[in-house]
């Protein structure tokens, strides 16, 4: 099919994942996972505990070393490069600039002994920002965008509620303008009203910044609202992929049908 303009032009995928396999000793983490993620796309990965979704995310984000596979990221200067064979300093640089990782527990993504403003400013300094006034102004701007009042900028995250800590973690991650965000259960452990607020925030940021994101969650309501595409995992394998609403409304695999039919209706 030919298409001459914008809608489906030949765009390089931001991330090309091929054959990712990870074992923990003899036990399978995930096997032969592959997909393409395009700029601006949000992909959800769902499955129950132990399905391999967090292992996969760890492998993609460079936190775990897979036993086989490639993770090609479209770098700004050199085009697609396999992040698994990059040198450690190169990968760390990527982690500070184009990539961001939002942890389920804000404590894993924040420095709890540093002020809210410091948490955001630290990421900026890591990419070379040196002007104190500029850093503080940007920190305050970002805290505002995640709805943390300016008078809390000097407070430590320990003094924040769970929802506020999570919003601070998002500000810290997005301040450097990353192109790809990994999220591990970003709304897990929060009250539903706080979840809704966070989802609204994430959706707005994804649209405004043109971010691509990979979201691991067990919450189907979260992926319905946030993800364009869905990948369903079971026992380390991908059992189904497709458009989010299609997978949820017309699931093809028995396991997905079970997942969807097990959700309590409200």
């Amino acid at each position: 099919m030919t298409d001459t303009h914008t809608t489906t032009g030949r765009v390089t995928p931001l991330l090309q994942v091929r054959g990712i396999t990870k074992f923990y000793g003899a036990r399978l983490g995930c096997r032969d996972v592959g997909f393409d993620l395009y700029p601006g796309e949000v992909m959800g990965i769902v499955g129950e505990s132990g399905s391999g979704k967090s292992t996969l995310l760890g492998c993609l984000a460079g936190q775990l070393a897979p036993d086989a596979g490639e993770v090609l990221f479209d770098t700004r200067t050199e085009g697609p490069r396999d992040t698994l064979t990059m040198s450690e300093p190169e990968r760390r640089m990527l982690g500070r600039t184009d990539w961001a990782f939002v942890h389920q527990s804000a404590r894993d993504g924040l420095r709890m002994g540093v002020s809210a403003g410091g948490n955001v400013g630290e990421r900026l300094m890591a990419v070379g920002a040196r002007h104190y006034g500029g850093i503080r102004a940007q920190a305050v701007d970002w805290l505002g965008r995640v709805e943390i009042p300016e008078d809390r900028v000097d407070d430590r995250p320990t003094a924040f509620s769970g929802g506020m800590q999570q919003r601070l973690q998002i500000a810290r991650n997005l301040v450097t303008g990353p192109r790809l965000v990994f999220m591990d259960e970003p709304t897990g452990g929060l009250d539903v009203s706080v979840q809704a607020r966070l989802l609204d925030l994430l959706r707005g940021l994804v649209r405004e910044m043109g971010l691509s994101a990979i979201i691991v969650t067990h919450d189907l309501a979260v992926v319905r609202l946030l993800a364009d595409r869905l990948m369903v995992m079971k026992d380390g394998h991908v059992v189904e992929t497709g458009l989010t609403d299609q997978v949820l409304d017309d699931p093809q695999h028995g396991y997905t049908q079970l997942l969807v039919s097990s959700v309590l209706q409200v």
Binding site: T7, T8, E41, D228, R229, L243
Partner: peptide
């Protein structure tokens, strides 16, 4: 999926 998303958008 991304072609369908673009179709739905435009």
């Amino acid at each position: 999926p991304r072609e369908i998303l673009a179709l739905r958008r435009h």
